[in-house]
């Protein structure tokens, strides 16, 4: 893989260490002569000296058709320009743009950049995930935030507990990838009955995340939740009764 690392200081050095393997070809560009000199001495790697937002510098560094271009300039607009030139003039397959202002993440994506990263933005997102629903539901974005993996540990109060997957009306926009029960992985089919304390991992598209989270967090009504406070296995006889209750409710709503 051909990886271009443009500007940066200690962050560039760290990324060089991470990707400097036989499988990768690294191209390093740095506008700061002192930093470029340090990188050359410490990492034993060739560095093109110059600002990465100039055509001439990218030409000299031969970044044509590189697989990844990582821009680590201090100013967000410099990163924007560097990535845009790499993408449009040098046909780089994927540009990763680092930004210091977290509110620029969504904006830069809207303007056409592939991947926009902000340490503050990522930190805020993980804090939000950790604090979400008593830390029992976490989500991880993949493929440039197009796909979301949701990991949820089921509480007895959740509506989907003690129900077979085929009966719970699981949204068609998502799929349960696997279930962890007592440290065992289960690849689920429709007959699997979800239990309290099961951890389920659901894959869905980003735009359906809110709908899925709402579905997972949906709680049993007070009448249903009352008899099942203990996380013990529900008895077989109880299940049909619950189904009857829920069906009775839906019919009531319809009559209203």
């Amino acid at each position: 893989m051909h990886i271009v690392i443009a500007n940066g200081d200690s962050d560039a050095a760290y990324i060089i260490d991470m990707f400097n393997t036989k499988e990768n070809r690294l191209t390093v560009i740095n506008g700061n002569e002192a930093v470029a000199q340090t990188l050359m001495e410490r990492k034993h790697i060739a560095v093109t000296i110059g600002d990465p937002w100039h055509n001439t510098i990218l030409e000299a560094a031969r970044v044509y058709d590189a697989d990844i271009f990582i821009s680590l300039c201090k100013k967000d607009t410099d990163n924007f320009a560097s990535c845009l030139i790499a993408k449009r003039n040098f046909h780089v397959k994927k540009c990763i743009c680092a930004v210091s202002n977290p509110s620029n993440v969504e904006l830069y994506k809207k303007l056409g950049l592939d991947v926009v990263l902000s340490s503050t933005y990522l930190l805020a997102k993980s804090i939000k995930n950790e604090s979400n629903a008593e830390s029992l539901i976490k989500s991880l974005s993949l493929d440039n935030e197009k796909i979301v993996m949701i990991e949820a540990t089921l509480l007895p109060k959740y509506w989907i507990c003690d129900q077979a997957i085929k009966d719970m009306g699981f949204p068609k926009t998502a799929s349960i990838a696997y279930v962890v029960r007592d440290y065992n992985f289960i690849i689920p089919n429709g007959d699997l009955i979800l239990r309290p304390r099961d951890t389920i991992v659901v894959a869905c598209a980003k735009e359906n995340e809110v709908e899925i989270l709402r579905f997972l967090k949906r709680q049993k009504t007070t009448v249903e939740a009352a008899p099942a406070p203990a996380p013990e296995e529900p008895k077989e006889e109880e299940r049909p009764a619950k189904k009857k209750d829920s069906s009775a409710k839906t019919t009531k709503k319809k009559t209203k």
Binding site: K75, D76, T77, F80, A81, L84, L107, K110, L111, G112
Partner: peptide
């Protein structure tokens, strides 16, 4: 006076 700022603003004014 900064070409990169000008480039970014041109995109914002046009596309956003």
């Amino acid at each position: 006076g900064d070409d990169n700022v000008n480039l970014f603003l041109a995109y914002v004014c046009s596309l956003v």
